[in-house]
Amino acid sequence: MPDRSTISRRTALGLLAAPLIRPALRIQPQSIITKPIPSTGEALPVIGIGSWITFNVGNDREARNACTEVMRNFFELGGKMIDSSPMYGSAQEVIGYGLNRLGNPDALFSADKVWITSTARGASQIENSRELWGVPQFDLMQVHNLRSWEGHLETLHAMKASGSLRYVGITTSEGRRHSLFEEVMQTQPLDFIQVSYNILNRRVEERILPIAQERGIAVIINRPFQQGNLIRRMKRQRLPDWASEAGATNWAEFLLKFIVSHPAVTCAIPATSQVRHVKENMAAATGELPTEAMRQRMIDYVEAL
């Protein structure tokens, strides 16, 4: 019978050292669909992960571990981009907890936001976010909902110039402030924009997405399931027999593939706290993407429901 105290000590040491010695999660890039970030050509998987609501679980250890499992599966399935904001309660801290438990995967593409009225305090908020994530620096920092955008963009461009940030972006959601959003896109050097878009809310197709294509700006799509309302509604309906022709075997794939098949869209960031859902979502980054004709067929079908 082994010495219990020895095992206990060894186990304890192993647990403490786990983040240091555990190899970075192996990525399986063989079948993941990626799109290039126009400003650099860097390939990004078309499905990322958002953290609004789903990762805001506070100090609940059990729920934090569940979020970590979501992240583990996300990385194992070839995911890269995780997106958050200081506005999302404890989500940044929960992401940092998960990344630490997973040994800080090399694959991570960290995307966060600056969300504060005072532009003078923008840099300190970004630094606080970085500490919560536990990353050396962010890949992408976005001005959340264009809040104090002029001052924050100055800060972000200075960070990018100094090498402490790789990409700069702006965000909005649910079609808000699109006029100003277009103006900023036209006048500022941006790597990314983040907007809401789904099969029933296609307003950004009119001007935002064409401008992004013209200006060479990567596009992240938030709220692809309309905060879950869209997918809940769709799951009550029958998936069309021809869904497999669109590369979809379930509604999550159907809705996500519609989004990421738009030529201007770089990736979508559905949020979830369930491993089953992240697997469904990541399946949308595999196989074939719908053609233009198929996209129209998908729209016609969903609008007729």
């Binding site: 805001n56 999302y88 808000r176």
Partner: peptide
């Protein structure tokens, strides 16, 4: 808050029901 009329109550909800009850 600009375009305040476009916001819904759900835009201000930061947590899920499960998280709230677990609290």
């Amino acid at each position: 808050m600009s375009e305040w009329w476009t916001y819904r109550l759900s835009d201000f909800l930061l947590f899920s029901a499960d998280t709230y009850y677990r609290l």
